[in-house]
Design a protein around this nucleic acid. Structure first.
Lengths: 209, 209
DNA sequence: GTCTATACGATGATAGAC
DNA sequence: GTCTATCATCGTATAGAC
């Protein structure tokens, strides 16, 4: 490659402009100008604007998934070594803590969380399947551990309580970095550690009841 | 009006195509073709594509909000007449039950629930802001009642617990009507009444802890 | 007032030369 | 791999028919 960092420069520019202007209003002409590459480079390297968005998304999702997978496996192995079932609170924390922390470590996080929400709601199978393909193995491990933590509940009940918890978590990520959306009279200086404790206490109370 | 239902036909077509394809990929040409009206009719009757989206939302959101408002006021007035604070579970039910039921009662409204799910997750501020603008007054009443129900908690804690509950609810609505997305081994014949009970029990446990 | 036909500028995508 | 030139389609605007 004569320009070995062309793809990276496009990804950086796209991530910045998708975050600042939104997917629709960030034009390929603006992205390629900022990245100092030719307009056609996006379609050459990525195939389409949608595929570029997907790569921007995956660049963050894959490392995050590795962290969450490692945490879930750590909880599973610790419980096994102690000859007990994992505790529901441990399982929830193993997934939720890295998820929320990941979205606070840099200014792009806000957009990443909306991308996750969008992928979940996407009606187009091809786009949604890409997301499902990356999240499903992780979700199944999460689901399996939570079933072990709650052996007295039927599988459907465990699933829906997990689903409720995921909804609470993703909805929360959407608001981090957008404190201007908080109603008047609230503390707009969000304390992430306190928020994480509150969220974990909330979902744990709902999951174990 | 020589075509008294032109606006309604545009709204029906737009609701279906916005839900199926997303706001960005549903073109005005596709919408006006499906509605059997001229392309320019959208800009004549609504002003812009974005204004059309807002009307699509308002047509369903305003009646739904009236139901939810009435339920919240009923809970508030009943508590007042009995000289007590409203109970958290009553407050949560007043909002959540009409919300979930509204999206299951007729096939047209099913498109709306898809739209709401997408609007909240949409990367475009354009789409999300339309939704937030219409839900905010209701949210503030909801918030106020929940503060009265939980007088020992500070305002920020109440807000976040409410926010977690809204996340669980909207995430759940996203899955209703799409049981094919449920993992293998789960009951795909979703029982709305049971689901509502489970969701209410979950958020109530998290809110009151 | 409503509706139609048509045109405009900008966009995402692509073919082909280098 | 990168470029230029070009294309189809997009949202929008407007002139004029009924």
């Amino acid at each position: 490659m004569s320009q070995p960092d062309t793809k990276e420069r496009i990804l950086d520019a796209a991530e910045m402009l998708f975050a600042r202007d939104g997917f629709h209003f960030a034009s390929l002409r603006a992205i390629t100008t900022l990245a100092k590459v030719n307009l056609a480079a996006v379609n050459y390297h990525f195939g389409s604007k949608e595929a570029l968005l997907e790569e921007v998304f995956k660049r963050r999702l894959i490392p995050l998934n590795e962290i969450r997978q490692a945490e879930l496996e750590r909880v599973r192995d610790l419980a096994e070594s102690e000859g007990r079932a994992p505790r529901a609170e441990e399982v929830m924390a193993a997934f939720i803590v890295p998820t929320v922390r990941f979205c606070c470590q840099d200014p792009q996080a806000e957009h990443f969380s909306t991308l996750v929400g969008r992928a979940i709601a996407e009606p187009d199978d091809t786009v949604r399947n890409v997301f499902i393909h990356h999240i499903m193995p992780l979700f199944l491990l999460f689901f399996d551990l939570l079933q072990k933590a709650l052996p007295d509940l039927d599988i459907d009940t465990v699933f829906w309580r997990l689903h409720f918890s995921m909804g609470a978590t993703t909805h929360t990520m959407r608001l981090i970095g957008k404190p201007e959306l908080l109603p008047e009279g609230l503390n707009r200086n969000i304390d992430i550690d306190k928020l994480l404790r509150d969220l974990l206490a909330f979902v744990t109370a709902g999951v174990v009841q």
